[in-house]
Design a protein around this nucleic acid. Structure first.
Lengths: 151, 151
DNA sequence: GGTGACGTTGACGTTAACGTCAACTGGTAA
DNA sequence: TTACCAGTTGACGTTAACGTCAACGTCACC
C-alpha cells in the first residue's frame, strides 16, 4: 500500500471481492472499466477499488436493471463526477438527466400496467384451477433447477 | 380456435400498416412471428393481421420497454392463449406469471430510486447554474438532431 | 524453486434483436 | 407488355454485453 493522501482508513476492495459481493464476474467489472464506467486506481498492475467505486458499481447494476445501456450509464455517472465542468456542459447534462427522468416515468407506467394485466391473468388461471378442484397455491412438483445462480 | 367463422367486419391490417402505426419496421414484425410471438393468417403468402394481433403487438412492445426478452414475451403471450391447456401447464404458467410480477415490483423500486437520485442530481446542477447567474430552465442552443425517429 | 491462487491483457466466441441486402412473386396502372 | 408496387424468403452483417480461453506475471508458502 503506498497510500497517497487518501483517508488511510477508507476501505478498499479487490476485483474478486467486488465480483462476489455483487454476484458478477471479474470480467464484467473490467469490461465496465473498459467502457469508462469505473476508474479504479492501481497497485502495480492490480486494480484497487475504493468505496466510491463500490457505489458506482451499485449504480451501474441498478441502472442496468432499469434498462440503461452502459453508454448511457457512463453519461449518468460522469454527471456525478462533474461538479465544475463547463457551464455549457452542465446545461447539456441537466437536459440529459431530465430526459432520462421522463423516460423512467413512462417506464414506470408501463410496469404498472403490465403488473395489473398479469394480475388479471393470474386471477383468471386461478379460477380455471379452482374450477377443476385444485388449490391454485399448491407448490409445483419438484421444479428442476437449472443452475445455482451465485458463485 | 380455428373458426373459419370470424366476424366478417373485424378490422385487419397489412404488415406496413402495423409497422407505421407502431413505428417499427416490417422486418421486426416478421421477426416476432419467427420467434412465435405472432401468428397472422395468410392470404396466399401475404400476412393479414387481426385485432387480436394488434393487441398482441401492443403487449409485445410494452413488454420490451419494461425489459422482457422476446422469449419471455412469448411465454407470457402463450399464457393468454391458453384457456384450456393441461392442468399442469396452467399451474406452471401461473408460477411464471407470479415470478414476473415479483421481478416487476422490484424493477419499479429500482426505477423510483433512480428517479429520486436523478432528481437530486438535477437540483445540484441547477444550483451550480444559478450560482453562475444562469437560468437553469433556459433551452439549449440549437440542439442538433440525430435523426427523425419515425418512418 | 515449484506450485497454486489471484491478477493481468489480448483475442475470439456468443446471444439477442433486429438491419440490410438480394432475388423472387403476384397484382395493377399505364 | 412493361413497370412499379407491396410483400415474401433467405442469408449475412451488426451492436451490446459479456463469456471463454490462452499466455503471462507475482506473491506467499513449503
Amino acid at each position: 500500500m503506498k497510500a497517497g493522501a487518501e483517508p488511510a482508513g477508507s476501505k478498499t476492495y479487490s476485483i474478486t471481492q467486488l465480483s462476489e459481493e455483487f454476484s458478477i464476474t471479474p470480467r464484467a467489472i473490467r469490461f465496465y472499466e473498459d467502457r469508462g464506467l469505473l476508474h479504479p486506481r492501481r497497485d502495480g498492475q492490480t486494480r484497487i477499488y475504493s468505496q466510491r467505486d463500490w457505489v458506482r458499481l451499485l449504480l451501474i447494476l441498478r441502472g442496468k436493471r432499469v434498462g440503461f445501456s452502459l453508454a448511457e450509464l457512463r453519461e449518468i455517472l460522469d454527471l456525478y463526477d462533474l461538479g465544475d465542468g463547463q457551464t455549457e456542459q452542465i446545461r447539456r447534462t441537466l437536459e440529459t438527466a431530465r430526459a432520462k427522468m421522463v423516460s423512467l416515468e413512462r417506464q414506470r407506467q408501463d410496469i404498472d400496467q403490465t403488473i395489473s394485466e398479469l394480475k388479471t391473468a393470474c386471477g383468471h388461471f386461478e379460477n380455471l384451477l379452482v374450477e377443476r378442484g385444485i388449490d391454485p397455491h399448491m407448490p409445483l412438483p419438484a421444479q428442476r433447477r437449472r443452475r445455482a445462480g451465485a458463485a
